[in-house]
Design a binder for these strands. Structure first.
Length: 223
DNA sequence: TACCAGGAGAAAA
DNA sequence: TTTTCTCATGGT
C-alpha cells in the first residue's frame, strides 16, 4: 500500500468532496482559523453569525472591538484567542493589500507571509494556501498523521514539514508531467477525503476498533 | 459524565 | 530544544 493507493481507495469509497465548504476565499481563511482544534459544525455557527451581522469582511473584523468579535464567534470555542488571531490576520491581510495583491506573490513568499501572522500556524496557512489561493500545498492534519502512522506508512513522530513533503513528492513522482492545476486538484481532494474518513470511522479510541485499532487499517485495506 | 474536535503559541522543564 | 499547558463550545 502506498500513499497514492490510499487516495484511490478513499475516493472510491466516498466520492469527490469538492472542498472547501465556503462561498468566498476570505470565508475559507476565516474558517481555517475558526476550525483550529474545533468541530466544523461549531465553526458553521460562527460563520453564520458573522454573516448575519455583515461582519464577514476583513475591514469589518479589523474594526470590531475584541469583545464584540469574541461574542460573535463564541460557538466555535476558544473565542478569546481566536478573536485575537482573526484580528491579527485581518490587519495583516489589509496591510498587504488584500487578496488580489497577495495572490500575485509566488507560493513560497505567500506561505512565508501567512506564517508570519501570530495565530496562523502551518496547517492553517496551508488550508489558506490550498483552498483560498489554489496553491499546490498539501495540508497535513491530525487525521493524516493518525491514519497513515497506523497504516505503517509514516512514523507517528514525523514532523509537519517532512510529512507534507512526503505527500507532495509521492504525487509528483507518480506522474511524468504534473502541472500546478493537477497538483492543486489532487491535494484538495485528498485532504478532504482524509478528513471525511477520519470523521467517519477513524476517530481516536475507543472508536478506532472499527477501523484503525491495529496497525493495518481494515477499512482502507478491505474496501 | 467524559471525551474529543479539520491547532497554535506561551510557559515550563 | 523538547514537552506541557492553556484556550472553550457543542455534539456524542
Amino acid at each position: 500500500m502506498t500513499l497514492f493507493s490510499v487516495y484511490q481507495k478513499l475516493l472510491n469509497q466516498y466520492g469527490p468532496q469538492q472542498w472547501w465548504p465556503a462561498d468566498t476565499p476570505f470565508e475559507v481563511m476565516v474558517g481555517a482559523i475558526l476550525t483550529q482544534n474545533t468541530a466544523w459544525t461549531n465553526v458553521e455557527k460562527s460563520i453564520a453569525r458573522l454573516k448575519s451581522k455583515r461582519k464577514l469582511t476583513a475591514q469589518a473584523i479589523d474594526r470590531l472591538q475584541h469583545d464584540q468579535l469574541a461574542e460573535l464567534i463564541r460557538p466555535s470555542g476558544y473565542f478569546n484567542v481566536k478573536a485575537t488571531r482573526l484580528k491579527n490576520f485581518c490587519h495583516w491581510y489589509l496591510a498587504q493589500g488584500g487578496f488580489e495583491t497577495l495572490n500575485e506573490l509566488d507560493t513560497a513568499s505567500l506561505r512565508h507571509g501567512l506564517l508570519s501572522v501570530n495565530g496562523v500556524g502551518p496547517e492553517t496557512a496551508d488550508d489558506m494556501m490550498l483552498y483560498a489561493f489554489n496553491r499546490p500545498v498539501f495540508v497535513v492534519d491530525a487525521y493524516t498523521r493518525r491514519i497513515f502512522s497506523r497504516l505503517g506508512l509514516v512514523d507517528d513522530a514525523i514532523g509537519y514539514e517532512p510529512l507534507r513533503e512526503k505527500f507532495e513528492l509521492e504525487f509528483i513522482s507518480k506522474r511524468k508531467q504534473v502541472n500546478e492545476e493537477a497538483r492543486v486538484a489532487h491535494y484538495n481532494e485528498y485532504h478532504a477525503l482524509i478528513v471525511v474518513h477520519g470523521k467517519d470511522v477513524c476517530r481516536t479510541r475507543p472508536r478506532c476498533e472499527k477501523c484503525c485499532l491495529r496497525r493495518q487499517c481494515a477499512f482502507i485495506s478491505d474496501n
